[in-house]
Nucleic acid binder design. Structure first.
Length: 702
RNA sequence: GGCGCGGUAGCUCAGGUGGUUAGAGCGUUGGAUUCAUAACCCAAAGGUCGGGGGUUCAACUCCCCCCCGCGCUACCA
């Protein structure tokens, strides 16, 4: 459908899962592009509602609560607050940021579930599933490990063996264990309600494969086609869990709606909550970005049920099936709702050569960035926008971030604006000078300027945000080039009116930048408007050379962007590696157990407390220290490979554990008579084993 | 394993339906300039478009095979 066919826009960004902090990859995937799109639509005078909210159900929430030793509610409260705050600081212009734990969402989800149920569109099925008695919960396949029946790999997951690649069902596993408690789970009967996706295949084929073949992105279309061609299966819409939305049926005790059933409905609930709040005046979650005066409580329906509404979901590629197949089928099946016009899913953004992962400590989390760069949300927006993973996975590096800031935002955009301001202050008392006769170069600049709004619009409307962003920067380039060609600073002494004409045009370009930058760099655009002493201007006014009237007084000038020094970037890179190392230490499993030994074998070892009397480096050796140790029995020489971990002077006088009856051995020409015992930490560092309190040398360890 | 998306200059990436000398930004080198946050402006160098076959007057683009990365399948944007 063409743009003109729609009366209003309903825009959603993927609901972030409130089980942990979100990182810049999430911003690049579903948030910044959506915000640019929405800000552009608003500037263009379109009727648009933009919603998001925290996704707070699902099994991972109680699991995270277990990990942090708290309640599920506390987990979602914590991360909802954190994510919410970060989005505000990043300039995300949601009309509402809601929560799926809110009653209105429970109500909406249950209503939709019941609509499907009452229409007879859900099927009931009873099956056996593994149950963990101690955790009192049914176990998803991912939470069961056991021996692979094919290759014998001892820790295959319930859904697939990672060693041989066979896809499994948890019931195939030999000796299954719950990953939550380590217990052997038991099989229990349980009833669930399924959505028979396969019966919507004809409709999906018509809707996606035929009507959206050319306007959906290839990655999205291909993924959908793959699902549809493979043949769809019934999918359970309920789960056995005590955290979530109760299944609204009499015989459904202890069952909740599947999180992927309720989460997308969160978009609808959020819209409902928005209109509740703007009509009642009680603002809890909404931050309306436009005037909703005259709206009615029921207006949310227009945005979700009227065919003239254009619905667009911004998501990451991992969510494609839910937003393109399952949720649309739910919406379609109700017979009441519209389905998305487009789902411009992005691929993933990598970081410094590796996948982003919060659990592996390899990410830049929103709150961390904002703590370190509190006044630079636009710089991150820009760095992400110019490198969005629109067609394939992309790569974020700190050096690139610095270069984008220093070479583009500062050197091209900020610098152009500054040049125009400084010259105007110098020669025209900070007032917009009059426009005289136009020369070829002026006409050319104005003609070029005129092309920008349409060019950038075109990119945004076809979801090419990277291209749109570079279009904006090209406008600043145009400004710089214009100044370089006209060289007003040379003419000041001979032809001031001519200088006025040039600066008038330069300032008009700056004013255009303040309008067209708004979707991309909202904070800087607003700062620039203050500098120009102008209010907001609609998109369709841009492209002209009369945004500023002659003699209009400019406001106080300031630098729009500032350089980021090398040291600042080095700190960030170091921080990244430090965090990664910390997480590795915390998550690395211990080495597997060694073979069993008998007590007799163990008691052959003569392990004692000793005291280091002397320690010196061994020449020509990097690793060895030559130690004199008081073993209680005697004083003996021990060669120990610890020179990379301890300085000799630091360990003199330390009590250690020593194996005294190890066969002597010549090392670097010196006979070593025993072995100092060490703990080798996960990062490879060594730790001395000392008694908890001063102990007499020679004390036997058993 | 099956399926999907990618593999294009030193780096990060564009190249909708095959059509003149394959593009941008950054980086590099050279020039010009000094109003400006040592910034801007101009120019050049730099690519057997992952590898191999095929279709065609013509292939980065279409088809087949192989290699590599990522994703989905299997609740992280």
């Amino acid at each position: 459908m063409s743009e003109g066919a729609f009366k209003r826009y309903m825009i959603t960004s993927a609901l972030p899962y409130a089980n942990g902090p979100k990182h810049i990859g999430h911003l690049a995937g579903a948030y910044i592009p959506a915000d640019v799109y929405v800000r552009y639509l608003r500037l263009s005078g379109k009727d648009v509602v933009f919603v998001c909210g925290s996704d707070e159900h699902g099994t991972a929430i109680p699991n995270q609560a277990l990990k942090e030793n708290t309640t599920s509610q506390a987990i979602v409260d914590k991360y909802d607050a954190q994510i919410r705050k970060c989005f505000v600081k990043m300039g995300m212009s949601f009309d509402i940021y809601h929560r799926t734990t809110e009653p209105i969402h429970h109500q909406t989800s249950q209503e939709i579930f019941l609509t499907l149920y009452n229409k007879g569109l859900l099927t009931e099925e009873t099956s056996e599933q593994y149950y963990d008695d101690e955790a009192k919960t049914f176990l998803a396949d991912r939470y069961i490990k056991g021996t692979c029946p094919k290759c014998g790999h001892p820790s295959a997951y319930g859904d697939q063996c990672e060693k041989c690649g066979t896809s499994l069902s948890s019931k195939d596993l030999i000796n299954p264990k719950s990953t939550l408690t380590g217990n052997s789970p038991v099989l229990k009967l349980t009833k669930h309600w399924y959505l028979p996706l396969e019966s919507y295949e004809p409709w999906l084929k018509e809707w996606i494969l035929k009507s959206h073949q050319h306007d959906w992105k290839t990655n999205v279309y291909g993924q959908c086609k793959s699902w549809i061609d493979a043949g769809l299966q019934p999918r359970a819409m309920t789960r056995d869990l005590d955290w979530g939305i109760k299944v609204p049926l009499p015989d459904a005790e202890g069952k909740v709606l599947y999180v992927w059933f309720d989460a997308p409905i969160g978009y609808i609930s959020a819209t409902r909550a928005l209109f509740d709040e703007v009509t009642s005046g009680h603002y809890r979650f909404s931050t309306p970005q436009r005037d909703f005066t005259g709206s009615k409580k029921d207006d949310w329906k227009t945005y979700w049920q009227d065919k003239e509404t254009k619905l667009v979901h911004f998501i990451g590629k991992d969510n494609i099936v839910f937003h393109c197949i399952i949720f649309p089928v739910i919406l379609h099946a109700t017979g009441e709702y519209i389905v998305p016009d487009n789902v411009p899913a992005n691929e993933f953004m990598n970081l410094e050569g590796d996948k982003m992962s919060t659990s592996r400590g390899w990410s830049i989390e929103m709150h961390e960035y904002l703590e370190d760069f509190p006044d630079k949300p636009d710089v991150l927006r820009y760095a992400l926008l110019t490198n969005l993973p629109e067609a394939k996975d992309s790569e974020f590096t700190w050096k690139d971030f610095q270069a984008k800031n220093n070479n583009e935002l500062v050197a091209i955009f900020g610098n152009f604006v500054n040049r125009a301001f400084v010259l105007t202050q110098k020669f025209f008392d900070n007032k917009v000078p009059a426009l005289g006769d136009l020369q070829e170069v002026d006409k050319k600049a104005l003609a070029d300027l005129k092309l920008f709004p349409a060019r950038i619009s075109e990119s945004i409307e076809t979801y090419r945000f990277r291209e749109a962003t570079s279009g904006l920067m090209d406008l600043a380039r145009l400004g710089n080039k214009y100044l370089a060609e006209t060289e007003p600073w040379k003419l000041a002494k001979t032809d001031l009116p001519r200088v006025g004409t040039i600066l008038n045009i330069a300032l008009q370009i700056a004013a255009n930048l303040s309008v067209m930058a708004e979707p991309f760099l909202p904070f800087s655009a607003s700062k620039l408007k203050t500098m120009l002493n102008v209010g907001s201007t609609q998109w369709h006014h841009a492209g002209t050379g009369d945004l500023l009237a002659v003699s209009h007084s400019l406001g106080e000038s300031a630098l729009l962007f500032e350089k980021i020094e090398d040291e600042v970037i080095e700190v960030q890179i170091k921080k990244l590696f430090d965090t990664k190392k910390k997480m590795e230490l915390a998550s690395q499993p211990a080495a597997p157990a060694k073979q069993e030994v008998s007590f007799d074998e163990f008691s052959k070892m003569d392990i004692r407390i000793g005291k280091i009397l002397k320690a010196e480096r061994v020449e020509k050796s990097k690793k060895l220290l030559k130690l004199q140790v008081d073993t209680g029995i005697d004083t003996r020489t021990v060669m120990s490979g610890i020179a990379e971990h301890f300085a000799p002077e630091d360990i003199i006088g330390k009590q250690v554990t020593i194996l005294v009856n190890l066969a002597p051995r010549k090392i670097m020409g010196v006979e070593s008579q025993g072995m100092i015992l060490m703990a080798s930490d996960k990062d490879g560092s060594l730790k001395l084993l000392s008694p908890g309190a001063e102990t007499a040398p020679g004390s036997v360890i058993s």
